[in-house]
Design a protein around this nucleic acid. Structure first.
Length: 579
RNA sequence: GCGCUCUUAGCUCAGCAGGAUAGAGCAACAGCCUUCUAAGCUGUGGGUCGGGCGUUCGAAUCGCCCAGAGCGCGCCA
């Protein structure tokens, strides 16, 4: 098992602290805040000083004295109030990087105890095309899915299709209203179904009777009316097929395509269980559970509505039950809009009360909304919601316009170029979505988002493409990868940046925060760009340098590709640009 | 009304398990393509971290108060 530089030195510090009889809790190093002074720093002496009632500089001096003896350390100093600054020897950096390059996982360990995690993201609905609101759930969810899998957890993703609520009754009611019956349903395509849903929405808003009819049909559907079931199944199938295409384009992977309807039976069980436990009551004709009032408003959870249908919270509670019983989930992660946080709080609380999720960690990762340039939820020019597939088309078109046309560049077919366009457009969209903290929303400016400069997906893809190009040239010129040696500051900085890989992955995993990865990927690409400009590879001063730099570049490429993979982004082999 | 989240450069955002000179990108300005892809690189300017009080040797980071913004709060999901 290879250890990163940071892990190695954390261990060395722990040994020193132990030897000095200091609490090893504080034996933690981190990349230096003052790169001009050191590679790494340890602030442990400052924290220790308080509890030991000693001068922090004295404690730091003791630690520094021990550290000095280490041959892998090239310099040590105690600065300011008691920071321990130190630099690593070039030999140790080189050795560590060579090990990293040998390792398939680039030196990244796995979690000690792998868990069964069920991830719930996507959340599409029958008869509704995916819109920008679904983008974040899919992109963030997929990234977290990949991160968790990479660190060794067993992840099962479930799209959790919205296929069982009142909207189903609304659609059926609307079809009956228009056609008089459900006989022609199976000739409907997704466009028609979508249109019907919109009309149903309008009708139910305007007409209380229509709404009532929809509710009744929903209840009958849920109770098993065969005619409704048959039509519903068709509508569901068509919707699933449509939505699958977009998820495929987004490269979001779902192991399960279950929906709310699949929890129907468990919903009944949950209601029964609540009755047995005596925690439910009937109020205004609805079966509800009252939650303990704290200082915040806690509306009751509606198990069964007045019309006999299940409330959507039971569906989620019942789904937890099946995920624990059938899938043996030890952790369930929801990647859903943060405006639903109260809902999940209630659902988790009731699950607790019912005892259906014992020792299961339930977590809602709430993300902020995608906003337009005006700071309000993103809308198209005519005020409508933008379809996700349209958004992808627009993005692709912007990329395409900056690329050579098929036939203009030798060796690239139309398909090759189109693949490149897709990879770059998707890279831009996803990186944009993942680069900020997921809890904060972001501004998605349609006019601007095809500018691929700076902190963007294409910037990183571009770094990969340039390295690919060098590797091709090296191969053609018969230059092979050799051992990494550190000969100057730019190589050194790049090597130190590379060595942070594991730490970054583990932090992204612990915080369930892909932006930690986007941030690192960008910085790594940036440091590489500096190296690229100052350290020639093919024309290096001598061969030792050439093969070493080639290996460094190759390792950067592998690392960036791995990071992009964890973000759900592909890196094109080559990036062409129109003349 | 109650609760949750937020307020950092002109704009969009990082940083927040307290630590040394608060960072990026965009925009602006000045340079760099006969040499591994200029979707790139180098440099310049730009900030009383919303305001106040407190805890601490030390606060953008922790606590309290105030102001402003967004979101949520029983039969839609």
């Amino acid at each position: 098992m290879t250890l990163s530089i940071e892990k190695n030195f954390n261990q060395k510090f722990a040994d020193i602290f132990q030897k000095l009889d200091l609490d090893t809790k504080f034996a933690v190093i981190k990349p230096s805040d003052r790169p001009d002074l050191s590679d790494f720093q340890c602030n442990g002496a400052l924290a220790l000083a308080k509890s030991l009632h000693k001068n922090p500089r004295e404690i730091a001096a003791l630690i520094a004295e021990e550290l000095q003896k280490d041959k892998d350390v090239s310099s040590v100093s105690v600065d300011g109030p008691g920071f321990i600054n130190f630099k690593i020897s070039n030999e140790f950096i080189a050795k560590s990087l060579n090990e990293m390059a040998e390792d398939e996982r680039l030196g990244c360990s796995k979690v000690a105890e792998p868990k069964e995690i069920v991830m719930d993201f996507g959340g599409p609905n029958v008869a509704k095309a995916l819109h920008v609101g679904h983008l974040r759930s899919a992109v963030i969810g997929e990234s977290i899915r990949r991160i968790e899998t990479f660190v060794g957890n067993k992840v099962i993703s479930d799209v959790h299709f919205g296929d069982w609520g009142t909207p189903m009754g609304m659609i059926l009611a609307e079809i009956i209203h228009q056609d008089g019956n459900l006989d022609n349903v199976e000739s409907y395509d997704i466009a028609k179904i979508s249109a019907i849903y919109k009309q149903a929405n309008i009708r139910c808003k305007e007409d209380e009777n229509a709404k009532e009819t929809a509710r009744q049909i929903t209840a009958e559907l849920q109770n098993g009316n065969p005619e409704y079931r048959k039509a519903w199944k068709y509508l569901r199938d068509v919707s699933v097929a449509d939505v699958k295409k977009t998820y495929q384009e987004l490269d979001a992977h779902f192991d399960l395509w279950l929906g709310e309807s699949d929890a129907h039976q468990a919903c009944g069980e949950v209601v029964e269980l609540a009755k047995e436990k005596g925690i439910s009551e009937v109020d205004d004709g609805a079966t509800i559970i009252r939650l303990p009032e704290t200082n915040k408003p806690m509306p009751p959870v509606i198990l069964v509505k007045t019309d006999g249908g299940f409330g959507y919270q039971v569906t989620d509670i019942a789904t937890i039950k099946t995920r624990v019983e059938d899938l043996h989930a030890q952790e369930i992660i929801y990647v859903v809009d943060k405006r639903q946080s109260l809902h999940f709080e209630q659902v988790f609380q009731v699950s607790e009360m019912l005892g259906i999720a014992k020792d299961v960690k339930l977590e809602h990762i709430g993300f902020g909304t995608v906003n337009g340039a005006d700071g309000k939820p993103f809308k198209t020019r005519d005020g409508g919601v933008m379809n996700l597939s349209d958004l992808i088309l627009i993005s692709k078109e912007k990329v395409r316009s900056s690329m050579p046309k098929a036939g203009e560049v030798e060796g690239f077919s139309k398909d090759d170029i189109e693949k490149m366009v897709t990879q770059i457009a998707m890279g831009a969209i996803k990186f944009q979505d993942l680069k900020n903290n997921i809890a904060s929303g972001y501004v998605f400016d349609l006019e601007d988002f095809a500018k691929f400069d700076g902190k963007t997906g294409p910037y990183i893809q571009y770094a990969v493409a340039r390295i690919n190009s060098i590797l091709r040239k090296a191969k053609a010129g018969g230059l092979e990868i050799g051992d990494i040696v550190i000969s100057n500051e730019d190589e050194r900085n790049l090597a130190l940046k590379l060595s942070q890989f594991e730490n970054v992955i583990m932090r992204a995993h612990a915080d369930k925060e892909p932006s930690i990865i986007t941030d690192y990927a960008y910085t790594l690409a940036q440091v590489f760009s500096g190296f690229y400009n100052t350290c020639p590879i093919m024309n290096a001063e001598d061969k030792t340098l050439a093969v070493s730099r080639l290996k460094l570049a190759s390792l950067v490429r592998d690392t960036l590709k791995q990071l992009l993979y964890l973000l759900g982004i592909e890196a094109p082999e080559v990036m062409l640009k129109a003349a």
